[in-house]
Design a protein around this nucleic acid. Sequence first.
DNA 1: TGCCTCCGATACCGAAAGGTGATCAAGTCA
DNA 2: TGACTTGATCACCTTTCGGTATCGGAGGCA
Lengths: 210, 210
Amino acid sequence: MQRNPNRRLPREEVRRRLLAEATRVFAERGYADARIEDIAAGAGFTKGAVYSNFGGKQELFGAILGDGAETELAAVREEIRDLDDLPTMIGRVASLVTRRIVEDSGRGHLGLEFAARAARDEHTRQILAPMRRDQREGAARSIAEVAERTGVRPAVDLDQAALILHCLTNGLVNEHIADPEAVDAEAVERALRTALTCLLPPPGDDPGRE
Amino acid sequence: MQRNPNRRLPREEVRRRLLAEATRVFAERGYADARIEDIAAGAGFTKGAVYSNFGGKQELFGAILGDGAETELAAVREEIRDLDDLPTMIGRVASLVTRRIVEDSGRGHLGLEFAARAARDEHTRQILAPMRRDQREGAARSIAEVAERTGVRPAVDLDQAALILHCLTNGLVNEHIADPEAVDAEAVERALRTALTCLLPPPGDDPGRE
DNA sequence: TGCCTCCGATACCGAAAGGTGATCAAGTCA
DNA sequence: TGACTTGATCACCTTTCGGTATCGGAGGCA
């Protein structure tokens, strides 16, 4: 089963490969329908490797959850780092986030799977809740930063804006998965742009009012 | 197993009871962990009744999906039917939707379960997508109606506002499930109020911009 | 080189649960 | 009232998988 029959891989590498494949398979099939054997095989091992590196299925799932230390926000910050014009920034952010939503559907599926599981599994929720909190706080900080840099006075409380944008994004992911034709890339991007513009109004400009 | 050993229930009634119990159990345990036998037993029957009334597990699940012909929107319309003051309406709507989200967690769980399943099951998606579309369109109509009645000119395109509010609501449900302590009723309600106020600005009033 | 340890492979177990089909009871109609 | 139809029950089958126990080979160390 080992790809190279004569060479044993370092433990870390085995773990890494299993985790990567598990992420893929859990996203594709959901927790219940993901078979440990398939994950192992996809990574080039057998079940034994999984049980040798993780406590079991639930633990493997938990490891993925924690592993996905979101780089999402970092990408957004990077995208707008050198800009100082708010409308441009909004356009860029909307476009970037949209691309992520539409192109990396696996992430969306996995997120949905996490949430659905957290709804009934305390352990999952205990891992997921602080992650979500971090995301919201990160978003709030980024918004504050942008507001300060552009000299814009946000239309609403920062934490609320962060919560709204965070939830709106998740909701758009959900909607795009449920109805990808009607809620396509364009619709997602427009919604994001509109929401951002409403919450962070460019001084003197009134968005899209026909 | 039949509760009343001497009386046979009409087919419709059997179906209704099974559906009701299935809704409960699917929401509580999720698709995979919901056992047909438990659903049947909970409704006062055995597995056979399920197979006699539905094609199988997947079909039972689908029947629930279709059955939940959302009364959500109707409740909202009812709530604001007699009002004509926009801020009051916004307050009422936010409060009502929040109560639904926080109190009826079963619905939220079920919605999450539907979405997660739709992500990988074409058949589920084909049922879910038009339902979601209906919801969005209904929301758009309601917003239009409110705008007309209050004489407010919406800040943004109606369909976009509907999409944003719809997705925001779903995102809030998701977030409340994932982190119910941080995203509690108050946070949800404020977020809704803020978003509504931003999208439908009361004439001359500029929301919370201190 | 030879032993010892680690860790992944392999074979196996047992439980759980979806689905099936013969059977029998309740309602219906002539 | 007695046959026919409908539909739920019950026992059973089958498959699928998570988990475990054992084995064997690779690599390190003296």
